[in-house]
């Protein structure tokens, strides 16, 4: 298993390299002048030229890309006009906007997004698999219809609606929860959890219908398999059949989908972050894209890409652990 994971991680590096080339190329071809945007509206052409030179934007694109690559591995020295700033490896460059280290910017904001994604994942798995399971156990009855209806409604409601609804219900009227503010896990784990509950729930409601449906259809499929018939023919109860013999096989597609969704949360949760005022990477990405802040965009694409790729490796390993017939190679 270890050689397999090592080989897959090498694959991730290759994917990230390709991604960075694509982002650089897109950036180079896109209209807009980052130097002008960084300098501000009052700059004259001479000042813009100075800023461009300072940001290294007057160099050919492959030289810029080379600086980026060497920066990641060995660190890089940047001129800030008045002096030189050293950026330690892994250096993703300095923001065009405020000369802050991109690595630092992302490191600052990643915990909030990671907490949100992880919390939401746990909730959507609990809600999704739970209601999928329940609707199979009570198939054909009212429970199944109500569950389908609720999860579908969750998916059909945008986060900014369900978010406001949750905030009004739990924070304003019932006053069960404080209005969420981000408390880092390292500061106070309990407050961290309570404050993240609503944003995670809003995001999870959006995703859980998909999981409920997948769990349900996949379970019904495994329930029709021959080995389930064997246990029925030996008097094993329905609950044990579903829980012990059908669920395990049915979860394979759920694992795969979870990996993809969890990874993409790093780029897609910005609406929820904004809604609940979480200082996550989503807001950073929106801002960086608007201001053509290349180092920040590249850095975020790298982090998102790595999250998706690593989540998929974890999924494949889990697959092999769940089903011993799967050989990792």
């Amino acid at each position: 298993m270890i050689p397999y994971v090592a080989r897959r991680l090498l694959g991730v590096v290759a994917v990230l390299l390709v991604l960075s080339v694509v982002v650089y190329a897109t950036f180079y071809l896109a209209p807009g002048d980052p130097a002008r945007l960084a300098c501000g509206p009052k700059c004259d052409p001479e000042q813009v030229r100075q800023v461009r030179a300072q940001l290294g934007l007057d160099e050919p694109v492959y030289v810029q890309y080379w600086h980026f690559l060497t920066g990641v591995v060995t660190g890089h020295d940047y001129s800030t006009g008045t002096g030189v700033r050293h950026c330690d490896a892994p250096c993703l460059g300095l923001s065009f906007q405020n000369d802050q280290s991109v690595t630092g910017l992302i490191a600052q904001r990643l915990p909030a997004t990671a907490s949100l994604a992880a919390g939401a994942m746990v909730l959507w798995l609990v809600i999704g698999i739970g209601s999928g399971l329940l609707s199979v156990l009570r198939r054909g009855g009212a429970t199944e219809r109500v569950l389908t209806w609720i999860t579908l409604a969750g998916t059909a409601t945008p986060v900014f609606i369900s978010g406001i609804g949750l905030l009004m219900l739990f924070c304003a009227y019932l006053e069960w929860l404080p209005f969420p503010t981000y408390v880092p896990l390292t500061d106070d784990p309990e407050q961290w959890a309570w404050n993240l509950l609503l944003p995670c729930l809003a995001l999870a409601l959006l995703e859980s219908a998909k999981y409920a449906r997948l769990t349900r259809s996949s379970l019904l499929e495994t329930l029709a398999e021959d080995h389930v018939r064997t246990f029925r023919a030996y008097g094993v109860g329905e609950r044990a059949i579903v829980g012990r013999h059908a669920l395990r096989g049915a979860l394979a597609p759920v694992i795969a989908l979870t990996a993809a969704d969890f990874g993409s949360m790093f780029g897609n949760a910005m609406l929820t972050e904004t809604m609940f005022g979480l200082p996550g990477v989503g807001q950073l990405l929106v801002h960086a894209t608007q201001t053509i802040d290349l180092p920040v965009v590249v850095g975020l694409v790298m982090v998102t890409g790595a999250a998706v790729a690593i989540a998929n490796i974890v999924a494949d390993v889990l697959y092999a652990v769940a089903d011993r017939r799967v050989a990792l190679r």
């Binding site: 080995h227 018939r229 246990f231 023919a233 030996y234 094993v236 013999h245 769940a322 089903d323």
Partner: peptide, 25 residues
């Protein structure tokens, strides 16, 4: 009662021995 009959009184052996056992256990 049916559950006690199944297996306890009358047990069944199926055609395809590969698919008739739980692959995960």
């Amino acid at each position: 009662e049916l559950r006690t009959v199944r297996g306890g009184v009358a047990a069944m052996v199926f055609q395809d021995p590969l698919s008739s056992l739980d692959p995960y256990q």
